[in-house]
């Protein structure tokens, strides 16, 4: 059981409104990612759910029960912080056992559950170390271990991987996804990285300036972004936006086309341009092309496409892959 419902929730710090009245439904067992640029209020929203901040208006319900004024200790949620927030004076064992101790569990139960968590997270050898003797990835695992032992109703993650290096981040991303499949508990995961959002989420909530821009599965957001913001935020490399005459032809203020939906040809195509920069990743090549009368475009093409900087190329968007937006930036 772990459904969470936000009704008309808002939050202000003094004069500054950080979250403006928003509604959100999170089903039991879902993996929901809050994604948005930094400063958009993701952490604040998560902390409101956790109870670490008080709402300025609205209600929060967990499993149908109003918890708006319930203190964090009694919401039965577990949180993993960006800074890990491990107890520096306790060993790994002490850290993982702490929530159980607080819940008044017996010694044998604590021992067994700490062992289980340590096994799942590959921490068995480190149980007697202090947090400062661990690497970043291991600290992150301890923080997760501390979260899972208590079998909370839901897990809250606030940018848990942003202090790790790129390789470790990819590995931990997978581990957290697997953990979700194993535990089948509700997880809310905050990140500013849309790749993390796309790869991990059942459901993505795109936030911007304290508002929800769109809610949907990764592919829904990818295929049908509701507005320019979501279109530009989801997908990598970023969607190309074209306005002016080319957009008018299609009856829109702005049109968008993703780099992977552009076809290249040396001889013929809709638009013509010159290759500015070619980024070879091996599997893919990203071309930055200066288009005549349109401006710069990014195209994503096969890894070994024969092209050199300065070449003239012709570019054609794939059928049905053009997104159209009106003057307000809403999808048509």
């Amino acid at each position: 059981m772990g459904s969470i419902r936000l009704e008309n929730v808002s939050k202000s710090f003094g004069e500054a409104q950080v979250i403006s009245a928003l509604d959100l439904d999170i089903e039991d067992g879902a993996f929901v990612v809050f994604v948005g640029p930094s400063g958009c209020g993701k952490s604040t929203l998560l902390r409101l759910i956790a109870g670490l901040e008080d709402v300025s208006g609205g209600r929060i319900l967990i499993d149908g029960k109003d918890v708006t004024t319930t203190p964090p200790a009694r919401r039965r949620l577990a949180m993993v912080f960006q800074s890990y927030a491990l107890y520096p004076h306790m060993s790994v064992r002490g850290n993982i056992a702490f929530p159980l101790k607080m819940a008044g569990a017996g010694r044998e139960e604590i021992e067994r559950k700490v062992k289980d968590a340590a096994r799942i997270l590959n921490l068995e050898e480190y149980l007697d170390r202090k947090p400062r003797q661990l690497s970043g990835g291991q600290r992150q695992r301890v923080a997760i271990g501390r979260a899972i032992v208590r079998e909370p109703t839901a897990f809250l993650f606030d940018e848990p991987l942003s202090n790790l290096d790129a390789a470790l981040r990819v590995a931990m991303r997978l581990e957290i996804t697997q953990l979700h499949q194993k535990l089948k508990r509700t997880m809310i995961y905050v990140t500013h990285d849309q790749v993390e959002a796309m790869t991990m989420a059942d459901k993505i909530v795109v936030l911007n300036g304290g508002r929800i821009e769109q809610v949907g599965s990764p592919l829904e957001l990818y295929r049908n972004p509701r507005n320019l913001f979501v279109a530009g935020f989801i997908g990598s490399p970023r969607m190309n936006f074209i306005d002016g005459a080319e957009a008018k032809k299609l009856g829109a203020a702005t049109i968008g086309i993703r780099p992977e939906h552009l076809r290249l040809s040396a001889t013929e195509g809709l638009w013509k341009g010159r290759v500015d920069v070619a980024e070879h990743l091996g599997s893919d090549t990203f071309l930055h092309i200066e288009m005549d009368g349109i401006g710069p475009l990014t195209a994503r093409i096969g890894g070994e496409f024969p092209v050199r900087v300065g070449d003239t190329v012709h570019v054609t968007p794939e059928d049905g892959k053009i997104h159209r937006f009106d003057e307000k930036g809403l999808a048509l």
Binding site: A73, R74, M79, A85, F98
Partner: peptide
């Protein structure tokens, strides 16, 4: 954040 972690872990 460490104090908040304790609160989340159920500490009074």
């Amino acid at each position: 954040e460490i104090l908040e972690a304790a609160r989340m872990d159920g500490a009074s």
